[in-house]
Computed example of a mutant assay.
Amino acid sequence: MSKTQLIGDCLYGYVPGEERVCIENSVEQISAFIMNHRFDGQVKITKYLDIIEVQTVGQFIDQCDNKRFLNDELLPILVPMQSGEVEVPEFVPYVDVSYSVKNVRVVNEEGKHLLINIDFFDSMEETLVNDEVYDTEEELIAKYPKSISEKLAEHIVNAIPYERDEFIDEYVYDYCDVENAKDLLNISNESLMELWGTEDEKLESFTGVVKQKIHNMTFGELLAYTFKHNMNIRSIN
């Protein structure tokens, strides 16, 4: 499946009365989502920051401001599905590895210690990392020193998610100081001072650089960064 001209690796799908799901950014999966929910009322497909890309009534498009995408990409695939000329493909919710807590130490029913990954987006799914089991947690840690405890994983998963822009504003105005900003941007004191000034223009330039850097970080990178600097903030979408 080829990626559409829309921004991002995935979009978000909203169906009345259901939790939102991730949709792979391909015209086939967008069409499959629309067709699979054609009897569920008004369906919305949005991109980052919940900006509407497509809104439907039944199986028909009610709103799509991007006319180039609508006419050149979506309708040529969707219309044959609507008319029954082609089979509707299976809709498979998109899983973004950015929303994965990896290498979590757990104990199975036999009392053995092993590793799992927790993938979550409004729900959780556990997958085994490998077939290895250990008699003690110490043995597991010795083999995988970067693994994390189940307690820490639960803290991460159960944290209240919020949008990345909300996190950026909170970071810039409440948590950004010389030390963690230097670490974030990986620059020297001199370069940081060059960016960080009291003049409005320089301050705007500095915050612009910081915001762009955070926008480009993965969820895992952001999470590691906030833990490293003991920031008392929630998890980030």
Results as ranks from 00 to 15, higher is better:
Glu150Val: 07
Glu179Met: 09
Thr127Ser: 08
Ala181Asp: 10
Tyr171Ser: 15
Leu128Gln: 01
Glu154Phe: 10
Lys151Pro: 06
Glu137Tyr: 08
Leu185Ile: 03
Glu154Met: 13
Ile118Phe: 11
Asn130Phe: 02
Glu166Phe: 11
Asp122Arg: 11
Lys143Glu: 14
Tyr134Arg: 00
Pro161Asn: 08
Ile141Pro: 05
Lys143Ile: 12
Asp135Val: 10
Tyr175Val: 05
Ile156Asp: 05
Glu154Leu: 10
Thr136Ala: 02
Val157Leu: 09
Asp131Gly: 00
Phe120Val: 02
Val133Glu: 14
Ser191Lys: 00
Thr198Val: 07
Glu150Ile: 05
Arg164Ser: 14
Pro161Trp: 07
Asp169Leu: 09
Glu150Pro: 00
Ile168Met: 09
Glu150Cys: 07
Glu170Gly: 04
Ala142Ser: 13
Asn189His: 00
Asn180Ala: 13
Leu140Pro: 07
Ile187Lys: 00
Ala159Met: 09
Glu137Ala: 10
Ile156Val: 13
Asp200Gly: 12
Tyr171Gln: 13
Asp119Pro: 07
Glu163Gln: 15
Ala159Val: 01
Lys146Gln: 09
Ser149Asn: 06
Asn180Tyr: 10
Pro145Gly: 10
Ala153Glu: 03
Pro161Val: 08
Ile168Tyr: 10
Glu132Val: 08
Ser149Gln: 03
Ala181Thr: 13
Ile160Lys: 14
Phe167Tyr: 15
Leu195Gln: 00
Ile168Lys: 10
Asp165Glu: 15
Ser123Gln: 10
Met124Lys: 06
Glu179Cys: 06
Phe167Gln: 14
Tyr162Gln: 12
Glu126Tyr: 03
Asp119His: 14
Asp135Thr: 13
Thr127Ala: 03
Val129Cys: 00
Glu150Gln: 12
Lys182Gln: 06
Tyr175Ser: 09
Asp183Arg: 01
Thr136Leu: 01
Glu163Ile: 15
Ile156Ser: 08
Ile118Arg: 12
Phe120Met: 04
Asp169Ile: 03
Glu179Ser: 12
Asp200Thr: 15
Tyr175Thr: 09
Leu195Tyr: 03
Asn189Met: 05
Glu190Arg: 03
Glu154Ala: 13
Leu195His: 00
Tyr144His: 14
Gly197Ile: 02
Ser188Asn: 04
Glu126Met: 13
Ser147Gln: 06
Tyr171Trp: 13
Lys143Gly: 05
Thr136Val: 05
Val129His: 02
Tyr144Ile: 02
Cys176Tyr: 04
Asn180Thr: 13
Val172Phe: 12
Ser191Cys: 00
Asn130Met: 02
Tyr144Glu: 02
Val172Gln: 11
Leu152Gln: 14
Leu140Ala: 02
Glu125Lys: 13
Glu163Trp: 15
Val157Phe: 03
Asp169Ala: 09
Tyr173Leu: 11
Glu163Asn: 15
Glu125Ile: 09
Val178Cys: 10
Asp165Thr: 11
Trp196Val: 05
Tyr162Leu: 11
Ile187Glu: 05
Glu150Lys: 00
Ser188Arg: 08
